[in-house]
Write a protein that binds this DNA or RNA. Structure first.
Length: 138
DNA sequence: GCCAACGTTGGC
DNA sequence: GCCAACGTTGGC
């Protein structure tokens, strides 16, 4: 059973559009300097799916990505502590799901996105995954 | 642009 | 090993 995740990015630094432009080859999710986030990446398997979240101005889940390489040393640093996975864009959400909508949904009050807004890589439960997808289609 | 929250660093 | 200081992040 594949696990689900959420990847957060500032669109001015790395946006969904940038991710899509990388195509099936995908791109390293580098630059993470937080142990919790790193540990989640180490726990990922190829084929796991994740939400792609835009912080800052948009504050919304905008797309779905797939893990396409297991955790490996982060090429953006020589510090051996930091690993990252590669992800590739899979599909855009037909309608982005905003942080405001998520906060307003009683089913999602326990989401890491709400409880730990600064964590850049987060786990998503199967229930949360299904609920956000449902909101994207509603 | 401000402020609160939180993680990390460094001194003791 | 603890704790204070600091820097960064992200929402509003």
């Amino acid at each position: 059973m594949a696990a689900h995740w959420l990847f957060k990015s500032e669109p001015s630094v790395w946006s969904w559009t940038d991710q899509v432009a990388k195509g099936d080859q995908g791109e390293e999710w580098d630059g993470v300097r937080n142990y919790q986030a790193r540990n989640f990446m180490r726990a990922m398997a190829v084929g796991d799916l994740g939400f792609f979240y835009h912080s800052q101005d948009q504050k919304a889940v905008v797309g779905i990505v797939e893990v396409c390489a297991l955790a490996h040393p982060d090429s953006s640093t020589d510090d051996p502590r930091w690993d990252c996975v590669d992800i590739r864009a899979k599909t855009a959400l037909s309608r982005p799901v905003t942080l405001a909508q998520i906060k307003a949904n009683p089913e999602l009050v326990d989401m890491a996105l709400v409880k730990s807004p600064r964590l850049s890589v987060q786990p998503v439960t199967p229930e949360e995954w299904a609920e956000v997808l449902r909101m994207a289609e509603a």
